[in-house]
Amino acid sequence: MTRVLHVITGLEHGGAERQLALLLRHLPVTCEVATLTRTGTLGAQIRATGVPVHEIGMRHNRDAAALPRLARLIRRGRYDVVHTHLYRACVYGRIAARLAGTPRVIATEHSLGDGHIEGRVPSRGVRALYRATERLGSATVAVSPTVAARLRGWGVPPGRIVVIPNGIDAAAFAFDAARRAATRRRLGIAPHERIVGAVGRLVPTKRFDLLIEAVAALRGVRLLLVGSGPERGGLERLARDLGATGRVIFTGGTSDVAGALAAMDVLAAPSTQETFGLAVLEALAAGLPVLYTTCPALDDRPDGEVPQARRLPPDARLWSTELGRLAHATRGREREPVPPVVARYAIAEQAARLARLYEDGPDLREDAPDGVAAPAPGEAAPRRERAHDAAT
């Protein structure tokens, strides 16, 4: 069976990290994981499932000593594929894999935004290093057509880009009244309180500041912020300055996103920079109405396909009005039906597509459409998705 080493920067609770943990349960190949930095809580959970997790012990971004340690691990493991995730792991992982002689090196681009990568504005050096090391790989996976367009803008040749979206296990997020009650008790939320929720890393591009401002203007509504990140202190100060300290609940990172979604009445995602929008899909799977600003998973679909989700510009007054309306309208009401778009991103299908890519690689013929993964032997060719069909 194909043996794959996944290399990731760290294993705390983030979107890319959670996506990797989910993939590990569905990929039909033998997997191990190497984390450049700390194993973290998510890494411990992965290890508990029987998947080996190796800690490289990288101390900072320029800790070059991590490179030979990673190369030795890859050489000893004699993996068929090295699959990298997130910028630092992609740079070090591609180089180490090539030094170790790995036959196939795949990278998934989770966090390339419009003018930033992983929440930071990239320097010329960062962009140059990205392009140089990208060439060491076999292919780069974009999690949406939007990301594929950004990769081309960074100078990645179209024929090296394969679009395989993030996956979701919809059943794991199905609404459960008992889970709602238990989560609310644990967080100190009364059964009938109206809760607007948000899930994501606490960084500027998520615009949780706008959300705090919008909820602060409402009566009888509290905000549940699920996630950790460098902006937490600033967001706590903002809530205090607006007189909303007791009405904003900061949970930090959590392994129970499904429970947090069950506790909510509305999911708010005012982020102006997204590569996929996994939290929006998970909320729809949980039957929540959603307000969002940017979500490629929906923006790359036809207009009107998901009536449960409404797109809003980043205007705090407009968000306040719509959140107030939805929070009161959903009180005591059954959950929304799960829209068909959620099934489109089923994790089993995306994992199968990755497995085919591990075995056969992308179709790099001159006349092949961008972003097409070749089928495994004996299988029908997958539906072709053009990487340049990005949202405008």
Rank of each mutant, 00 (worst) to 15 (best):
L211E: 01
A327E: 03
L242I: 02
Y358K: 12
I106W: 08
G57P: 05
T245N: 06
T272S: 15
L67N: 06
D303T: 12
P375M: 15
V226W: 01
V121W: 10
V141W: 04
Q350E: 07
G197N: 01
R88Q: 14
G167C: 10
L42Y: 09
V81W: 14
L323V: 04
R94D: 02
A279E: 02
H83K: 10
A346M: 02
A279I: 03
G200K: 05
L73P: 05
T293E: 09
C31R: 12
S228W: 06
R219M: 04
R150G: 04
G14N: 05
A373P: 13
G10Q: 13
I189D: 08
Q273H: 11
I117G: 03
A65N: 08
T102I: 04
L73I: 01
Y79R: 03
A132W: 13
A343H: 13
G40Y: 05
V81D: 08
T133M: 11
P313L: 14
G115Y: 05
D299T: 09
D63E: 02
L210K: 12
A309V: 13
A96I: 01
E55Q: 15
N61C: 11
H60E: 08
L73W: 06
D176K: 08
A139E: 11
T133A: 13
R186E: 01
G101W: 06
V342H: 13
A309R: 15
A329H: 11
V162S: 13
R120G: 03
A269M: 12
L291P: 03
F276C: 06
P340Q: 10
A148W: 15
